[in-house]
Amino acid sequence: MSKRIDLESLNVYYGDFLAVEDVNMVIEPKAITAFIGPSGCGKSTLIRTLNRMHEVIPGARVEGHLRMDGEDIYAADVDPVKVRRQVGMVFQRPNPFPTMSIKENVLSGYRLNNNKMSKSDADELTERALKGANLWKEVKDRLDRPGSSLSGGQQQRLCIARAIAVEPDVILMDEPTSALDPISTAAIEDLAVELKEKFTVVIVTHNMQQASRISDMTAFFNIAGTGMPGKLIEYDKTEKIFSNPSQQQTEDYVSGRFG
């Protein structure tokens, strides 16, 4: 399943500091949406509100509405833990669990939640998730080796396998390739394009080519100055943003004439 996400006058705070101001946008299902913008404009902050990871930081809070297929995930009676089971996340730096093997890492979404599953189900799921992350061929002979024994790019795909193993509706990726070489980056970009068949994919990137290559929609964020809140400047089809944006700031940023 793939869900549509509605952000409605969303304000995101760290304590008293307003980091992202008044975001209104609709993230389409079965599509890749890219967040671009200069450093510090609140891309990571905003993407972390989509699975309620933002509030893990002490003092951090959100105002406004965020609906997934119409259901407000910030409603008072919503359990953030359950939201996170529907919205997978891949971080900037690969972070496989160091105490677990490759296979255990893939199954960690179930095992850590004390969900029992038969060995054959576990084997099947491991294979399916690793194939989904284009990692199966490289690791099928060493599933019991520690996850940290893989290369950085493989670790990142392992983290993607871990995220898709629990069959979420949405996959969030915060600069998933910024620590990787061009070949691993290409592998993950291909993967993202495959993932959008099944999931809603949101990706933060500093790489303009990456955004224009893989995303369907692009959101450009900007910040007026340090200490000011980040704002959504323009949100449109990717071709439009990169060929004929309606805002001067966007034009400057995507053409590299920025700050």
Binding site: Q86, R93, G109, N114, C159, R162
Partner: peptide
């Protein structure tokens, strides 16, 4: 990052600590 990885998988805090 490990705690966040676990939370992001929908694992509650106490299970994250224990496991």
């Amino acid at each position: 990052e490990l705690r966040e990885a676990s939370y992001a998988l929908g694992v509650p805090k106490w299970l994250t600590i224990v496991k």
